[in-house]
């Protein structure tokens, strides 16, 4: 959501600032627009995920025993490790933003690398979790076949696993998109596009990444822990 058109280092005079797009009067206006735009985008993300959370709560309401039984088959440890990993990545991302606020591009790049690393660990754990579910036939909807693998879950567990895959899957897609954005930011930071007065793109990337974390903060207890 950044509007930078040129790639030269920041300049103090707004009149000739190459980071200032033609239709804005000041950098302040441009930055404020970008941030408001990002917050509105986050609002749409929250509302989109809320549909899945509502589906989950209604599933719990309609089939409480089945949900309790089915969720025992999710690995608490995998979920827990991923929670710690994702929280850590949020931390490093926040430090990255702090670094560029202080004008330290080197540290920003380091923090981006650490964040990307955490994101990758998250996806790897997710991969092992998913492949275990695939092996056990705990698949969504009509592909559900866990009973053929010796797992008897009473009720309609195919709905639970459908919701599980949808929620974690959509979240996973957001993680992957976040990783791609951070990689791009890493490259741009290397080109010297960011500075202490021009870092709204980094800040917005951070906001997006924290939202991904926020969603997980609710997903983890609801899917893995709650009885």
């Amino acid at each position: 959501m950044s509007n930078e058109h040129a790639h030269a280092p920041a300049h103090d005079d707004d009149e000739h600032n190459p980071h200032l797009a033609h239709h804005f009067d000041t950098m302040g206006q441009q930055t404020a627009s970008a941030k408001l735009g990002m917050w509105l985008f986050l609002a749409t993300e929250i509302l989109m995920f809320s549909g899945l959370f509502l589906a989950y709560f209604i599933l719990r309401m309609l089939y409480p025993e089945m949900v309790l039984e089915a969720h025992e088959h999710l690995s608490k440890w995998a979920g827990g490790i991923n929670t710690v990993v994702l929280l850590t990545s949020s931390y490093t991302m926040a430090l990255g933003v702090r670094s560029i606020q202080l004008g330290d591009v080197k540290k920003l790049r380091l923090m981006l690398v650490l964040t990307i690393l955490c994101g990758c660990i998250f996806m790897v754990v997710k991969y092992f979790e998913y492949s275990a579910k695939f092996e056990h036939g705990m698949l969504p909807g009509k592909f559900y076949s866990a009973h053929l693998h010796g797992y008897e879950i009473d009720g309609l567990p195919h709905i639970f696993f459908g919701v599980y895959f949808l929620m974690t899957g959509l979240h996973g897609v957001h993680v992957v998109i976040g990783l791609a954005i951070m990689l791009w930011m890493f490259v741009r930071a290397g080109r010297g596009e960011f500075g202490a007065k021009n870092y709204v793109a980094i800040e917005n990337t951070g906001l997006y990444w924290h939202l991904v974390d926020l969603v997980w903060i609710f997903l983890f207890p609801l899917l893995y822990l709650v009885k």
Binding site: L36, W39, L42, A43, I46, L47, S50, F53, L54
Partner: peptide, 16 residues
């Protein structure tokens, strides 16, 4: 921005 965020939560609340 806080208003936008809390407003969103309120609309999620309406939906739920």
């Amino acid at each position: 921005h806080l208003f936008v965020f809390l407003g969103t939560i309120i609309f999620v609340g309406i939906f739920f």
